[in-house]
Structure formats: structure tokens, C-alpha cells
Simulated scan of single mutants.
Amino acid sequence: MCIDIQRRQIYTLGRYLDSSVRNSKSLKSDFYRYDIDTNTWMLLSEDTAADGGPKLVFDHQMCMDSEKHMIYTFGGRILTCNGSVDDSRASEPQFSGLFAFNCQCQTWKLLREDSCNAGPEDIQSRIGHCMLFHSKNRCLYVFGGQRSKTYLNDFFSYDVDSDHVDIISDGTKKDSGMVPMTGFTQRATIDPELNEIHVLSGLS
């Protein structure tokens, strides 16, 4: 969920479903907008994956760029039907990449697929992470989270205008003093005027 403070609108995406009720119909990822002033809901999409956006996910992060009227969503675990995939990855968790949604045109764009950080511009998807948007330097900041049984402690930024990833800390011991200790479900806020991020660590 994220809010457009200029237009006073809230966007909601994603949900969790128990494995017993998952099927091809229930796994469609619907996408809604709520207008605070008129107290009305609007269905923007019945299935964002069919529109070029993310599949149904939970524990992802969303950020709003009110100036450009864009939404960015990153990470989260993809919900799948048990036994619906025949390959060896059927039992492995799948994670969603980085997507952008143009609110005016109502179109999705995949910015980064999930990767194992094979290259300098690759990013590793996760759950339980923090993502913040800096409205002044127009960068997304991502920190922490968990991928399968691995707790992540990296810290990177993504420039939404230049499509560039900058690794601030790779999470190794040599950078241990630069970032908070590894944790799960951290909570963070950003102050663009002071150029500061404040993090409250979760389970560690």
C-alpha cells in the first residue's frame, strides 16, 4: 500500500492466500485505488501480471513518486499453485522483481528481474525489507530483508531517472559498521530535506 499525498489517493496491491484456496482464479493480482476525498474505490486491474506488472505477491514494498505520478514496487514472494509447475523450481520460493506503474497511463514496466546479483546493475529480490523513495535525488533506497532462509544486510539505491543501481553496502563484514545489523521486517522513514534515513530494526 502507498499514498499519493498530492492527489490524496491510496493504492493497494498484493495479498496472502493460504495454499488450500489457491487456484488459477484466486491467484490473479488485483490492483485498487482509493480516493480519500470522495470515499470511493476503483479497480485499476483484475490481474496486474496480465497487464505486464507483478504476479500476486505478499510482503513486498511500494513507493509513490507523487511528482511524476509513478508507483514503484519491489520484492515480495510470488504465490503459486502447489504442483502447478513441473520443473525442479516448483518447490523453490519465487520472488518478484522491480516494477514501475505509470498512474496516468495505467501501464506497468519491468525495471529489474529477480537475480542473484551476477552483475553490478542486478538486484536480489527479497521479503521483509525496507524501500523508501527520496523525492529530492529521485532514488529508491532498499535495505535488509530475507530470501528463503538467508537474512540480507545489503543496502543499495536505484536512480529512477537514469536506471542505475548503486551498491552502498554489500552486507559483508567489512561494511558491518555502516549499516544496522541484519534483521527482519525493519521499519524505516526518510527525510528528504535533511537527507537522512531512520531505521528501526526488527527481529535479528
Rank of each mutant, 00 (worst) to 15 (best):
V85A: 12
S66M: 06
T73G: 06
N102M: 06
W108Q: 10
F155V: 05
D87L: 08
K55D: 13
A90H: 07
Q146C: 11
R138D: 04
F58C: 09
V85H: 12
S135G: 03
F58A: 02
F58S: 08
C63F: 01
V142W: 01
F143I: 11
H69G: 01
D87W: 07
C116V: 06
L98C: 06
P54V: 05
R147A: 01
V57W: 04
S96C: 14
D59H: 04
L152Q: 09
S148H: 08
Y72S: 07
R147C: 06
F95Q: 03
D65A: 09
A90K: 13
D87F: 03
G144K: 04
D47A: 06
V85E: 14
Q61C: 14
R126C: 11
S96I: 02
G75K: 05
Q104A: 10
A50C: 12
S135L: 02
W108I: 08
G76N: 02
P54S: 08
C81R: 11
P93T: 03
F99P: 11
D114L: 10
Q61S: 12
H129Q: 14
I78P: 07
M62L: 14
S115D: 08
E92Y: 11
S157H: 02
L56S: 07
R77Y: 01
N153E: 08
I127Q: 10
K109M: 11
G53R: 07
D154T: 03
D87Y: 07
H129L: 08
N117I: 09
N82C: 03
Y151K: 12
I78T: 14
K68P: 00
E113A: 12
D51E: 15
S96M: 10
C103Q: 06
S91C: 05
A100T: 15
K68D: 15
T73I: 11
E113F: 05
N102K: 09
M62N: 06
K55E: 14
G145C: 03
L111Y: 11
F156I: 11
V57G: 04
V57R: 14
R89F: 13
Y151D: 05
K68G: 02
L111H: 11
Q61K: 14
H129Y: 01
S148R: 13
S66D: 13
S135N: 12
Y141R: 02
S88K: 12
D154A: 00
E92K: 13
K149H: 10
A50Q: 15
L152R: 09
A50W: 02
W108C: 10
Y141S: 04
N117Q: 13
M64I: 06
D154W: 12
F74V: 06
V142H: 02
R147K: 15
R126I: 00
M131R: 05
D59I: 00
G145W: 01
F101D: 08
G145A: 03
L140A: 10
S115C: 10
K149D: 13
F133C: 03
D47Y: 02
F156E: 05
P93F: 05
C105F: 06
L111K: 08
Y158S: 03
A118M: 09
M64A: 11
S91Y: 09
T80C: 09
L98R: 08
T48S: 13
K136V: 15
T73D: 01
K109E: 14
D122G: 02
G76E: 05
Y151I: 12
L110Q: 14
F99K: 07
P54H: 05
K55V: 00
G128H: 09
